[in-house]
Simulated assay, not measured.
Amino acid sequence: MQKHTFSLIDEAATVKLGCKIAQYLTPPFTMYLSGELGAGKTTFSRGLIQALGHVGAVKSPTYTIVEPYELANMQVFHFDLYRLLDPEELEYMGIRDYFSKDSICIIEWPDRGYGLLADADINIEINYVNHGRELVMQANSCQGKQLIEKIK
């Protein structure tokens, strides 16, 4: 599938890329975010969620597992599975109900929910490179491929 790499020199660049991607997102859409602790997954998510129309803070869902955002024409669910001890915990919270026709799901640490998550339209990996970051997007669906084409 299609892949594209972005260089991010600082936090502002990470937020800006999230904002740019938000312009082209339409539900249903599922995005996986991977990378080391502190690499910028939540920073990227903040830019994306606020650009989609959320006014206010975007909290890290590290302790709540999911933060819902009810927007005018969609629902956005921001997951952070870092503290998940067992993927079965997702079954108890009704994980499948979050992946609906009007939702955008952003999932940090998706490997912790292996086997219980909807397939991603796009995988994003954020890595440290020198003093900045590198964000690699890989499309896994036609919708993901179209997104990459629009933001290149």
Rank of each mutant, 00 (worst) to 15 (best):
M1C: 11
Q2K: 13
K3D: 05
T5F: 08
S7Q: 13
I9V: 13
A12I: 14
A13R: 07
T14Y: 15
K16H: 14
K16T: 13
K16M: 15
G18P: 07
C19Q: 14
C19I: 09
I21N: 02
A22C: 07
A22L: 07
Q23T: 15
Y24A: 13
L25H: 05
P27C: 05
P28V: 09
F29R: 11
T30R: 06
Y32C: 04
E36F: 01
G38A: 13
G38C: 14
K41R: 06
T42F: 01
T43C: 02
G47E: 07
H54C: 14
S60P: 03
Y63H: 11
T64L: 05
T64A: 06
I65V: 00
P68L: 06
L71M: 03
A72M: 04
A72T: 05
N73D: 11
Q75V: 11
F77E: 04
H78V: 03
H78G: 02
D80N: 05
D80V: 02
L81C: 08
L81T: 07
Y82M: 01
L84N: 09
D86G: 02
D86W: 02
P87H: 04
E88P: 00
Y92N: 03
Y92E: 04
Y92L: 05
G94N: 05
D97I: 15
Y98P: 00
K101G: 08
D102C: 07
S103G: 07
I104E: 01
W109D: 09
P110T: 07
G113R: 08
Y114Q: 15
G115W: 03
I122D: 00
I122E: 00
N123W: 10
I124R: 04
I126G: 01
N127K: 15
Y128S: 12
G132D: 09
G132W: 10
R133T: 10
Q143W: 13
K145P: 03
Q146A: 12
Q146L: 10
E149S: 13
K150N: 08
K150A: 09
I151Y: 13
